[in-house]
Nucleic acid binder design. Structure first.
Lengths: 225, 225
DNA sequence: CGCGCGCATTAAATCCGCGTTAAGATTCAC
DNA sequence: GTGAATCTTAACGCGGATTTAATGCGCGCG
């Protein structure tokens, strides 16, 4: 089943969209503001995001940019604003399509199909990441080591997921902190140290010499498959 | 250079589009009907097709379908028809985007960038700077020399990043100091000497005769790829 | 020729971030 | 309400990164 995240602050429109999408066979999760949208995006396996730009808490373009820091999921923008500047800004921030209200449900669904068709090309048919010591199944929210399941707490999972979704890429303290605890905690990296230690204790054979969850002193962490 | 095929039966609009695209740095080929469009698509290496639906010989949707028989090149449709049915038909035939006339050139270019960005993911996502002695991967925050990773400290990385992001450009002491240490340190260039020495020791084969990290006496430093 | 200036290089001293642990605080299930 | 799991907070030692200082080199200039 294809997972779609719909973000809109209008509960009415949200209901309609959810219904229409579910009727067409998509698995829909919803969010009503930017913060919870970004949260939901880390916690669900998504094939596409439908994003209304007019959100109560964060500017929609900012949501796109933050999402693009670590995800390439296709983003279809809805907006009441129809000037060229608005469209250019959203598209250049990382959106894939821009649909102005009011719009017909048929067109929305067709554009959605077009985006999914295009991104199906690069959908790595492997939501499972394997290392010689442990395996991570993004879709199933599961981690196992030597055949046995490893129990991860929510925060541990979230950190691991962000790192694993960006193999070999250096993820900064700032990004991890804001994605897990919110922007208010962007400075305090003590949390990270504690939880990275936990993760390594659970996943690394030798916590003193980590082979997959690497520290980049002063900057962040990196996952090495 | 990115190749774009523009198909439109209106010579005036065709000229305008060609000019706008070439100004933006694309290599443009043109066609005025469906038959020659399909022919041109077989003969040129294309990154994208801009297709007007109102063609004299073949129906535009048919053109898309025929093209899709053998090519997955992104197709951006232009059309004067703005009903849902038209859009759905074109998108489901294989188009990636549908823009109704009249449209602003800015929006067209933004949508085109969005499509190219998406399809670029499929090919080679390598924002890497290479010299004959070392390579710098900005996205992954990685530097390697002769295949082996080079460990850089945060400050070393920051300096290198600034230089590498501006190849051949002269960066002043002042700019490097303020970007790395903050405006308060804008005067003291001793820091820079120490760290440039470190960088050269790690990256240059002959630190006495640097080939890539050059000193511009009295002014600043320069990166030469 | 001697002097001063800016740069490169090195080594020592200082400082800070990291990993680690463990003790409260909080949340959640029942 | 109780207990277990999880999160927060604080403290400490270590190693590496940054800072600081000292030295040598090349060049222009008096």
């Amino acid at each position: 089943m294809t997972g779609v995240l719909v973000v809109d602050d209008d509960p009415h429109l949200l209901r309609i969209l959810k219904l229409a999408l579910e009727t067409s066979g998509y698995a829909v999760t919803t969010a009503v503001d930017g913060r919870s949208a970004l949260l939901a995006a880390t916690q669900n396996p998504l094939a596409l995001v439908i994003l209304d730009l007019g959100l109560p808490d964060i500017d929609g373009v900012t949501v796109i940019k933050e999402l693009r820091e670590w995800s390439r999921v296709p983003v279809l923008v809805l907006s009441a604003r129809h000037t060229s500047e608005d469209k250019v800004e959203a598209l250049d921030a990382g959106a894939d399509d821009y649909l102005t209200k009011p719009f017909g449900p048929d067109e929305l669904l067709a554009r959605l199909r077009a985006l999914l068709r295009r991104s199906a090309d690069l959908q790595a048919p492997e939501p499972v990441v394997v290392t010689e010591n442990f395996t991570v199944d993004l879709a199933k929210h599961r981690v196992s080591r030597e055949g046995a399941d490893v129990r991860l707490t929510p925060i541990e999972w979230k950190i691991l997921e962000i790192l694993v979704r960006n193999p070999e890429k250096l993820i900064t303290h700032r990004q991890l902190l804001t994605d897990v605890w919110g922007p208010a905690y962007a400075k305090d990296s003590n949390y990270l140290r504690v939880f990275m230690a936990q993760l390594r204790r659970k996943l690394e054979p030798d916590t003193g010499n980590p082979r997959h969850l690497l520290t980049e002193a002063g900057i962040g962490y990196r996952f090495q498959p």
